[in-house]
Design a protein around this nucleic acid. Structure first.
Lengths: 140, 140
DNA sequence: TGAATTTTATTAGCTGGCTAATGGTATTAC
DNA sequence: GTAATACCATTAGCCAGCTAATAAAATTCA
């Protein structure tokens, strides 16, 4: 019978816990929770997305988006506005405060990334990316 | 400014979501939730652990263990018993039902593992393990 | 046109994870 | 022996995720 630690999936879980924790700690200092910044990354790239577009891009369900936006809107980081032509859809826009978070949040992610990848060579990193992409495709 | 998808951390998140989802689906059929099986893997290896030992092994906080055990105990998969010499500690034991889950749950994890790693060679897998271990150590 | 279907978003309710605060019990120090 | 400290577990309350059920608007189709 296999021990848990022998699964690669287990190793991944054990890697992602401290990763999330480190990021969460620093996000808290900016008034954010882990996971919320993923919405922001999308909006920084394209503002005014609808909630269903966000759900699809984040690969997350609609209720999860609703909940996360509630927090972000309460913090005046985004605001939502009904679409002009379709009364069903809500479009999500960054506030100035939300736009101002781009630099510190990106910097924070980059710092964790750099720390995590210390001592890993460029060829190794490329192989790593390729393998992770394949694993993701395998699970589709 | 970096795009979210360029972070390796983002790639990992995007891999773990379907991984967790696949496992959860199959665990549900056995009456379990994702995460609970990690406690069981520990108990299958050594029965009668205390809750703080479990928390340490799983790298999870004490309240999380309490919550998860509540569910497992309600499902008659484990039962808890006060330690004979120290009235503070609760020891966690598998029930026959909990012991019977070892084969199907291990099998389930192995199947997802195999699917995830399809097309990945043995040397690649070894390198992958080494890199993940290093990344984990880097985040400590 | 009018009815059935699809799409968008929300609410309610569950679990896994966390922190902070609480209450017991052991241990240590004085 | 008593007081201070450390340890174990629980509770309360938070957020990210999920499913199922609901409501409302748009679209499709007869």
């Amino acid at each position: 019978m296999a021990r848990f630690d022998e699964f690669l999936g287990a190793q991944l879980i054990q890697l992602m816990r401290p990763h999330r924790y480190l990021i969460e700690q620093q996000l808290n200092a900016l008034g954010l929770h882990a996971g919320q910044e993923i919405i922001l990354f999308q909006l920084w790239q394209q503002d005014g997305l609808t909630q269903s577009e966000l759900a699809q891009l984040l690969e997350v369900t609609a209720p999860t988006v609703t909940k996360m936006l509630r927090g972000l809107e309460a913090g005046c980081i985004v605001h939502r506005q009904p679409d002009s032509t379709d009364a069903r859809v809500m479009r999500v826009y960054l506030t100035p405060k939300g736009r101002a978070l781009q630099a510190p949040v990106t910097q924070l992610w980059a710092a964790v990334e750099q720390r995590m990848l210390a001592g890993i060579s460029e060829p190794e990193l490329l192989l790593l990316r390729r393998l992770l992409a394949q694993m993701r495709a395998n699970l589709r």
